[in-house]
């Protein structure tokens, strides 16, 4: 595993920790989209179907368990925790996330590397992950007073895929036959969706003011 890939994974891990820290310490999920969190739980379930059948490494298995466990616990907190769920911006978080699932599934059935159940679900998870941030970005745009932890969480989540792109470039040049168009294009789309957010993030950082996306 190269350093870029490790950095990507760690960024992803830290993003989840930041979100859980927010939920645990201030008992609030204000500004966080439950729609996006539910999509991520679905992404991990469909991608990690091979967790008990194909052993890759201890690191790989542990990370998969962490991402599965944390995504479901975040959804649980936002839906059922008696204090946390009160802070959920239900009226603002109106993105119809189910409309993202079906097109991704159809696309995965049409465009995949191999027509097997596991491979199609893997591909579906890549397509869905690429667009899963959309409800969160819409909510961010609607929220007037976004707290710092939410902004850092979204930034880290975007940075993780950007680091993965660098990892793919590195692997392409160092490993024979490493060619995965579906993964690359999905990852690129995912990162491009962050373009606007990244722009305003750096602007707010440079000017040392609170981030707010223009409506």
């Amino acid at each position: 595993m190269n350093i870029l890939r490790l950095a990507g994974d760690m960024t992803h891990l830290i993003s989840v920790i930041v979100l859980l820290l927010k939920i645990h310490s201030i008992k609030s999920c204000a500004g966080i989209s439950l729609k996006t969190q539910e999509l991520y739980a679905l992404v991990f379930v469909s991608r990690y179907l091979n967790i008990f059948t194909d052993f890759i490494s201890l690191y790989n298995t542990i990370m998969k368990l962490i991402f599965l466990g944390t995504s479901f616990s975040i959804v649980w907190y936002m839906r059922y925790h008696k204090i946390v769920r009160r802070s959920y911006d239900k009226d603002q978080d109106t993105f119809r996330h189910y409309f993202l699932v079906l097109p991704c599934l159809i696309l995965a059935l049409l465009i995949n590397e191999r027509f097997t159940f596991k491979e199609i679900m893997w591909t579906f998870s890549l397509y869905l992950e690429a667009v899963a941030i959309l409800p969160q970005l819409v909510l961010l745009q609607r929220t007037k007073n976004t707290d710092n932890l939410t902004v850092q969480y979204i930034f880290l989540l975007g940075a993780y895929r950007a680091l993965y792109i660098l990892n793919w470039i590195y692997r392409y040049f160092t490993e024979p036959d490493y060619l995965h168009w579906i993964t690359w294009i999905s990852g690129l789309v995912q990162t491009i969706l962050y373009g606007d957010f990244f722009y305003y993030y750096f602007l707010s950082w440079k000017n040392n003011v609170k981030l707010q996306l223009p409506a």
Binding site: M1, R5, D9, H12, N50, T53, D54, I56, S57, N60, M63, K64, F67, E113, R114, T116, K118, E119, W122, Y164, N167, E175, D177, Y178, H180, T183
Partner: peptide
């Protein structure tokens, strides 16, 4: 064989 090389990524 089931494994393709991108399956080692998370």
């Amino acid at each position: 064989e089931e494994n393709t090389s991108h399956h080692d990524e998370l």
